[in-house]
Design a protein around this nucleic acid. Structure first.
Length: 429
RNA sequence: UCCCGCGUAGCUCAGCUGGUAGAGCAGACGGCUGUUAACCGUCGGGUCGCAGGUUCGAGUCCUGCCGCGGGAGCCA
């Protein structure tokens, strides 16, 4: 009977068949070991020459790494086996032979691995990282579903909208110009009067020529938007949300986090409340430490790392200077030099994983900001309509999926947390 | 766009103050009952990123270009 490797412990003593790919093959004079990966787990098959027909031994010992085979054998508990069970092989069927496999069980360079990303996916750390990603994605949908959010799918092809036009991918649209979306936020705002609590989750595109371990040109972003929520409500939601998905990963991805050698103690500390520090307080403290940081400048990577080092869990930095932030953020009534917004900085140097704000709901002030930023006014007429027909206080945020999963898995580069990363110089495979 | 670093065998790398190329892994063959990135032996394998320059002689020194990595900026 055909079985999955993950279920083998329930079939001790039985003869089963498992199908998969050869992860490793070690041939001795009278015994051989084949490590089979079937997508649900890994099992070692033991082949004893004296107990196999000559042609089967010949076939088995001539197999190559990553050949696809079906192994038939008796499930046998064995303390020496990594999964606790081995297969004493009685039959082998070759399903698909493999040419010489490029990725060896050894260290490789980044360029080589990315060139072979279509094969690299089979490696254990990659499987672990992508499985955590899938679990986090499911946790995200569950979190919002359980809180009565309605999922709104926003367009990928757009006219020129977003935060700044200089970083958009342009494409031809029947003779007109179109751009790949860099955010779904303006669209989910429009869905708020229809559904009150909404979110979008999809790919976004940035044509920034960034070459760092925190950047992709195509990444997945989750963007909730909530009517009648102010900036503090917004941070409360982010806090619940982050705690929920981290707890889910800890609960459901133990084996994967172990493969990734993740230090779980920093994840276990991700409990409410997160520290909240205003931009102005952060600047004062930076200067008190001798940083000589001028109020009004945006925080850079160095400052963010310093700030997150003050705390043992994610930290909110809120109410940045207006000049450092996007046009749609609401002016702070208590300090008009600032806007009601927040970033969430992940610990351990992973940087900004969330950016959120209360939105400007006053028609005149929003229009003034669009003009100040020299944005194409007619492109935003529909967005301004939201302030014309029953405007309302609302807030939302965007969470970068790959950065978040990069932090949860502890991987150094977020390119490993998306199946096929799109980087500034990489469009293949 | 700027700054720093790196391009040598299929892969990962060594190659000194210049003297014409080396290891491990992978591959092929042989050996070995329990291996976990198995081990031992033999063999095949090179436009030293590209172009120019200095020199009797360049993988090595110089210049330019290309590619890659990291960082800055910008952002999630």
């Amino acid at each position: 009977m055909n079985q999955q490797v993950k279920d083998l412990s329930r079939h001790a003593g039985e003869t089963v068949t498992v199908s998969g790919w050869i992860a490793a093959l070690r041939v001795h004079a009278r015994v051989a070991f084949v490590v089979l990966r079937d997508g649900t787990g890994v099992v070692q098959g033991v082949l004893v020459k004296s107990q196999l027909p000559a042609d089967l031994w010949e076939l088995a010992t001539s197999l190559t790494q990553e050949s696809c085979i079906a192994l038939t054998g008796v499930v046998r508990p064995d303390e020496r086996a990594p999964g606790g069970h081995e297969l004493t092989v009685t039959g082998i069927e070759l399903i698909g032979a493999s040419d010489e496999y490029p990725i060896q069980p050894k260290e490789h360079g980044v360029e080589f691995l990315l060139d072979h990303r279509h094969l690299w996916l089979r490696s254990s750390m990659q499987r672990a990282g992508l499985r955590v990603r899938a679990e986090v994605e499911q946790a995200i949908h569950d979190f919002f579903y359980e809180r009565d959010f309605v999922r709104i799918d926003t367009p990928i092809l757009t006219g020129a909208i977003g935060e700044s036009a200089g970083t958009l991918f342009e494409t031809d649209y029947f003779g007109d110009r179109a751009f790949l979306a860099q955010t779904g936020q303006l669209y989910v705002e429009c869905a708020c009067p229809a559904f009150r609590k909404v979110y979008c989750f999809g790919p976004t595109f940035r044509a920034e020529k960034s070459k760092t371990r925190r950047h992709l040109t195509e990444f997945w972003m989750i963007e909730p938007e909530v009517a009648f929520a102010d900036s503090n409500d917004n941070m409360d939601l982010q806090e619940d949300f982050i705690c929920s998905i981290v707890a889910r990963a800890l609960d459901r991805c133990g084996p994967e986090l172990e493969v990734l050698k993740r230090d779980l103690s920093t994840l276990q500390r991700v409990q409410p409340p997160f520290p909240r520090i205003s931009y102005s307080e952060a600047v004062a403290r930076l200067n008190a430490e001798g940083r000589d940081f001028e109020w009004g400048r945006d925080l850079g990577a160095v400052e963010e790392t310093t700030i997150s080092s003050w705390f043992d869990r994610p930290v909110f930095v809120y109410n940045y200077p207006k000049g450092a932030k996007a046009f749609y953020m609401k002016e702070n009534p208590d300090d008009p030099r600032t806007v009601l917004c927040n970033d969430l900085l992940a610990p351990e140097g992973y940087g900004e994983i969330v950016g959120g704000s209360q939105r400007e709901d006053d028609f005149d002030r929003l229009l003034a900001r669009i003009r100040e930023e020299d944005l194409p006014e007619d492109a935003y007429d529909w967005y301004l309509d939201l302030r014309r027909y029953g405007t309302f206080p609302h807030s939302g945020f965007g969470l970068g999926l790959e950065r978040t999963v990069g932090w949860i898995t502890g991987r150094p580069h977020i390119r490993e947390l998306v199946p096929f990363p799109r980087l500034i110089n990489r469009l293949k495979p």
